[in-house]
Design a binder for these strands. Structure first.
Lengths: 258, 258
DNA sequence: CGACCTTTTGATTGGCGTCAAAATCTGTGG
DNA sequence: CCACAGATTTTGACGCCAATCAAAAGGTCG
């Protein structure tokens, strides 16, 4: 719970080879001509090792980031007790760092889970993009709406679900999101996925201790609902698990206002 | 916890006197000329008694609503157990119902707390407004960002705070939001506010039972941090209470991306 | 190989839930 | 304006889910 993971290094910029910007969700659906024009907005690519800090609550960053590869988390630390609450899991294509308070301060921290590649955009450039480029504002609205849905589901888990239901939900959420990405990229699907987050991460997402998460995962494995070992996760009985967790795939879909 | 409040009636439309649309947050900061043009978008005004249903999860509504007066809540029911999780408290100016999944289904319910007046907009008109009216898309982005912050703070409360800290947080959140509205409208402030939500509502927002919320509120009153009686709330020691809850006012501020 | 995570297991504790009933409040109809 | 029903608050007794504490076992990476 006391988040002891060493943040091995902070963000450092390296001028980069071209970031395949068209794969980033924010720009999905934007006509090619407009995209060429916005390519200029891309500035930096960053490669970070696993478990390193991206930004920290209280800072006022001039950049926002899209995760290009790897897993990352947004989280906040309760200063009284040192406990950590994970706000969101980030997978490739996800955006972070745009949410600030009135004075430009970011209220949460971000860190990598695995080795990751980020694309950094100057915050001001995003502002200009939003004004110049109508499609991007609408796209960002949809992304925020999807993220809101993720946050609400974690709130429901932490607030009104049992430990078992909550853990099952997080496993399904991440399994499904990863499967979606694999399907979109490689047009294949598999019953098992790379699963680099720790049991402590799972607990910090839904308000449980690593110890209790462990016991619950053991239960789920004993009941042959999942298989989870050595950073690899399989869902053995998707139907039963989904019922237990009250999970449906459409919770993870984009929620298009437009 | 089993939400027994009777939903006395569902939405019914009445053609209305002009809704003072310029006070609705979504349209704050939009130039007057553009506003005249968008006045046409307003279609219906609805008056609902206390504790009535606005819309229900699973429905696909053709309308979105802004709360013009009164208090309301967004919530979701866990079907296994009948438990309720409140996702957000709504005060005048707040928007609801725009968040759907890919097939247009709303994933949460909404209900009034007090007698309320809503303004209904056809969802399609909102879509057109967002395309025609750049300022509104940006404004909606900021509103979503504020709502995300509220949701994250409730997640932190439910996940990683004690009952006392969580209840203190909700009281401060609502006190501060109401105070802000009073200040903006009447340019006065008061140490006490109308507080129409029940202790069960508070519990359902941060994952506690009404019984335990009651005990915690008693504690907070015994310690002279708050006064809470007959639907009226005073904060007696804002400093101590804020420290306990780890609450800061900027959590409630708009989080402008632009 | 050695240091440090991470997972696993056991024993014990405690915060909050559950159950139940009384007291108080609120709105509604006679 | 009172009476009554239903909602909400309050209080007490008791139980349990998950936290805490502790330590061993297994993984991982330099």
């Amino acid at each position: 719970m006391n988040h002891k993971a060493t943040h091995k290094q902070s963000v450092s910029f390296t001028e980069c080879t071209k970031c395949p910007i068209r794969n980033v969700s924010l720009f999905k659906g934007v006509p090619k001509e407009r995209l060429e024009q916005t390519q200029d907005y891309r500035k930096n690519q960053i490669r970070l090792p696993a478990r390193s800090r991206i930004f920290q609550e209280g800072e006022s960053h001039d950049f926002i980031y899209t995760l290009y590869s790897g897993w990352a988390i947004l989280y906040k630390t309760i200063s009284n007790t040192g406990k950590r609450q994970i706000l969101r899991f980030l997978l490739p294509g996800d955006l972070m760092g745009y949410q600030t308070n009135a004075s430009g301060i970011i209220s949460h921290s971000a860190g990598t889970v695995t080795e990751s590649i980020l694309c950094a955009f100057p915050r001001n450039d995003l502002k200009n993009m939003l004004i110049d480029n109508h499609e991007i504002a609408l796209r960002l609205l949809n992304m925020e709406s999807r993220d809101m849905s993720l946050c609400q589901n974690h709130l429901i888990a932490a607030g009104r679900k049992t430990a078992k239901e909550s853990v099952a939900f997080v496993l399904l959420e991440l399994f499904y999101r990863v499967q979606n990405q694999i399907k979109n990229s490689y047009h294949v699907s598999s019953q098992s996925i790379e699963f680099p987050i720790t049991q402590e991460d799972i607990g910090d997402a839904v308000g449980l201790t690593n110890v209790h998460v462990n016991r619950v995962i053991k239960e789920l494995m004993d009941e042959k609902l999942i298989q989870c070992h050595k950073k690899r996760l399989s869902i053995l009985d998707e139907k039963k698990l989904s019922e237990l967790a009250e999970f449906t795939p459409d919770m993870m879909s984009d929620n298009p206002l437009i």
